[in-house]
């Protein structure tokens, strides 16, 4: 083996250990619930907890709504900015980066001040209203990822020419977006969707302060009161997140292919 390659492998090994050792340690600890030998008791305990099922189901549902709303907001916005208002792209970049700059705690206090039960739009006055607010908050939180995923997808296709080709054949804007643009960026949109899901499923701050029965606050609650179950939940969350990332990789294989052959 060449010395350069050897060093590359050493650096890779250190990096991999940095990430894997805590993970393996957590997994190993999660199996130690029964004294003396390894078992999946902590996992059984987690899965049998009705609060796990309720909170996980709730976060999944809110996550799905956040994905749908995110797609409905981001796809047309990116499409029109790329097609008609390209000079607004730097502004879009800036706006979509704001959720990464502004802490979630600031965001949720802002929401509570603006939409409390004595305001003009009293979202927090009812459970449904708060769920709507939580969904909107997650759309905002996932905006940097959804925007970039969709923008990258649209960059890969010639949306101007495809739009014109569809227009000249009689298609209106709604049909162009649903029949031509969306199917061609579906993989990018799904990438954004899985990233949104990964963010929503473990989010604690906003769900907790809006007092919603989400998975994030449940994780925190278990972590504060139990010994082995938090490790099991950490591994479960990790598997869910990596599952979402794996789906993105898998879907990339099904992206519509373009050709620029001249023969």
């Amino acid at each position: 083996m060449k010395p350069n390659k050897l060093w590359a492998w050493i650096v890779f090994g250190i990096g991999a250990a940095y990430f894997l050792v805590p993970l393996i340690a957590t997994f190993e600890f999660s199996l130690k619930m029964r004294r003396g030998y390894y078992s999946f008791d902590s996992y059984a305990s987690v899965f049998s907890d009705p609060r796990f099922q309720t909170t996980f189901g709730y976060s999944t549902l809110i996550g799905l709504f956040a994905i749908v709303v995110g797609i409905l907001v981001v796809v047309p916005a990116v499409y029109f900015v790329r097609l008609r208002l390209p000079h607004l792209r730097p502004l879009m970049e800036f706006i979509t980066l704001l959720p990464l700059i502004i802490p979630a705690i600031v965001l949720v206090y802002g929401y509570i001040r603006l939409y409390n039960s004595s305001s003009i739009i009293p979202f927090t006055g009812s459970a449904l209203g708060t769920d709507v607010l939580l969904t909107c908050a997650y759309v905002t939180l996932a905006l940097p990822y959804m925007y970039r995923a969709v923008d990258t997808g649209m960059r890969a296709i010639d949306i101007k020419t495809l739009t014109e080709a569809a227009q000249i054949m009689g298609a209106d804007t709604a049909r162009i977006i649903t029949s031509i643009i969306l199917p061609n960026i579906l993989v990018a949109v799904l990438s954004g969707a899985f990233l949104t899901f990964a963010i929503v499923i473990g989010e604690f701050t906003i769900a907790s302060l809006l007092n919603r029965p989400a998975f994030g606050p449940y994780l925190q609650n278990i972590g504060a009161n139990r010994a082995y179950e938090p490790s099991a939940l950490a591994i479960i969350s990790f598997i869910i997140t990596w599952g979402a990332m794996g789906m993105i990789q898998l879907l990339a294989r099904f992206a519509p292919r373009t050709s620029a052959r001249t023969d």
């Binding site: 020419t161 569809a166 227009q167 000249i168 054949m169 199917p183 519509p256």
Partner: peptide, 20 residues
């Protein structure tokens, strides 16, 4: 009249076939 109501056909330099 908007392009989608002109009842014209067009072929583009970059083919512009719908990849999907």
């Amino acid at each position: 009249i908007p392009p989608n109501q002109r009842r014209l056909g067009m072929v583009f330099q970059a083919y512009a076939l719908f990849p999907n």
